[in-house]
Amino acid sequence: MAGGTQSDDDIAAEWEAALSEQGGPAAADSADWNASAEPPSARKAVDRVLNQDEVDGLLGFDPNALGLADQSGIRAIIDSALVSYERLPMLEIVFDRLVRLLTTSLRNFTSDNVEVSLDGIKSVRFGDYLNSIPLPAILSVFKAEQWDGFGLMTVDSALTYSIIDVLLGGRNASVKMKVEGRPYTTIETSIVQRMVEVVLEDAEAAFRPVTPVSFSFDRLETNPKFATITRPANAAILVTLRVDMEERGGVIHIAIPYATIEPIRDVLMQQFMGEKFGRDATWEGHLATEIWAARTEVHAVLYDQRLPLKTILDLDVGDTLMLDVKPDALVELRCGDEVLTHARMGRSGEKVAIQIAAPLRPSRTTLAAFEAAGQIRKEAS
């Protein structure tokens, strides 16, 4: 062929020669390659083609998923940097407490056997969560007054119809309830709103040991586009609560943007309830007691002058250093490099003494701890 390229026959001949040199079963298949109408290189390319399922598995994409399942492959690598945020241990404790409170409250609300469980807490992008909400669903927007932020609570259709069925006297059917695509009626939205208010009341009680907060109901929406409370790219915490009522039940999703809980982020980073990041009265009292009993050296400095190193090296026997100080000048009382107060030089019997001429400089710490330590010492003695 012109241009130095090989024809298909030449490629086939080289392939047959390579197989014949290897011998064995591979050589027996050379006739099949020669009989083939297409070149071996083209057949190899056809054998490497992946089907759609294999491509979806490689990319970690499932068209039937709602976006809430664990992802893998290249999609997980892309999304991991977008929703990877610090862990908040105290938040898990708060929602565990919410599960216990909500179990009792929903039992009283429905007069039925209700079990609430925590399916998980994860970080998601708010826009991805809105796009993954299965419709129909009721979305409730609530406001955290002290945090000056909003949250979103989603009640899926299965739980909505289950609550309505229980409260309006429906029988307990073992068959799966059919989800209708019609809009919700006023009675249905009123019942769900009342249930949402019950959940918000328990959420306030769950957060109370950590920080006081008031969750106020804002509005109900059935279209996710009208329930946007933050930018779609912002991260949010998604809490999934499963409510089971014997053969019925559903899921409640609580989405709280990270911007909403930012005022209490330091508190939520605690490892356990009551962990202290600031003042500790017990340690303060112990430290004050030890400082009160510690021994330290105090120096009375009559005169202090800084000289160049060259002047000091040139000093010789008989040289005189002039002290620029008067006879009635005050001396400094120092503890290390800290100046405590000033005093006057004098004599008491056979010893040189000083008389305090000014009060001590105020301490940078409060004296409450030292007073408490002194009281403890008096009681101990």
Results as ranks from 00 to 15, higher is better:
112 D>N: 07
129 Y>G: 04
103 T>G: 10
148 D>I: 14
87 R>V: 12
114 V>P: 07
152 L>S: 03
162 S>Q: 03
132 S>F: 01
97 R>M: 15
96 D>I: 10
50 L>M: 12
69 A>H: 07
32 D>C: 07
132 S>P: 02
82 L>M: 03
49 V>M: 15
36 S>L: 11
96 D>W: 02
64 N>R: 14
68 L>T: 02
80 S>G: 10
108 N>Q: 07
126 F>Y: 12
77 I>T: 13
122 K>C: 01
78 I>W: 07
29 D>L: 15
97 R>A: 15
104 T>I: 11
32 D>H: 11
73 G>Q: 08
99 V>Y: 07
50 L>V: 08
158 A>R: 14
154 T>V: 14
134 P>V: 03
37 A>E: 12
49 V>K: 11
82 L>S: 13
102 L>K: 02
158 A>T: 13
78 I>C: 05
110 T>R: 01
58 L>P: 04
75 R>E: 10
101 L>A: 12
161 Y>P: 01
29 D>Y: 12
82 L>C: 07
70 D>H: 14
44 K>H: 06
111 S>Q: 05
127 G>C: 07
97 R>I: 10
118 L>W: 06
74 I>M: 11
86 E>R: 15
57 G>W: 00
32 D>G: 13
147 W>Y: 13
53 D>R: 00
141 V>K: 04
82 L>Q: 09
109 F>P: 01
116 V>G: 04
60 G>N: 05
89 P>M: 08
85 Y>C: 08
114 V>R: 06
164 I>S: 01
138 I>T: 02
155 V>C: 05
64 N>C: 05
115 E>I: 12
134 P>G: 01
93 I>A: 11
76 A>R: 10
63 P>V: 10
117 S>V: 14
98 L>I: 15
159 L>Q: 08
91 L>N: 06
29 D>G: 13
78 I>Y: 04
55 V>C: 01
143 K>H: 15
161 Y>D: 02
67 G>I: 04
45 A>P: 05
35 A>M: 06
90 M>T: 08
43 R>V: 11
100 R>N: 13
115 E>P: 00
112 D>K: 03
87 R>W: 10
164 I>P: 01
108 N>D: 09
61 F>S: 00
39 P>T: 14
44 K>G: 03
89 P>W: 10
47 D>M: 10
112 D>M: 04
127 G>D: 00
146 Q>S: 14
131 N>W: 05
55 V>K: 04
95 F>I: 12
33 W>S: 04
130 L>R: 05
133 I>P: 03
151 G>V: 10
97 R>T: 15
156 D>G: 08
47 D>I: 04
116 V>D: 09
143 K>I: 13
76 A>K: 12
43 R>H: 08
85 Y>T: 14
65 A>R: 05
153 M>Q: 14
113 N>S: 11
158 A>M: 15
62 D>L: 03
141 V>I: 13
131 N>M: 09
95 F>C: 01
65 A>P: 05
74 I>K: 09
45 A>D: 09
86 E>Y: 07
128 D>C: 01
102 L>Y: 03
71 Q>K: 12
106 L>Y: 12
91 L>R: 00
150 F>D: 12
36 S>R: 09
72 S>H: 13
72 S>I: 13
47 D>P: 00
43 R>K: 11
79 D>E: 11
112 D>H: 04
132 S>A: 12
63 P>L: 03
149 G>S: 15
40 P>W: 06
59 L>H: 05
94 V>Y: 04
89 P>I: 01
142 F>H: 06
136 P>L: 02
86 E>S: 15
29 D>A: 10
115 E>F: 11
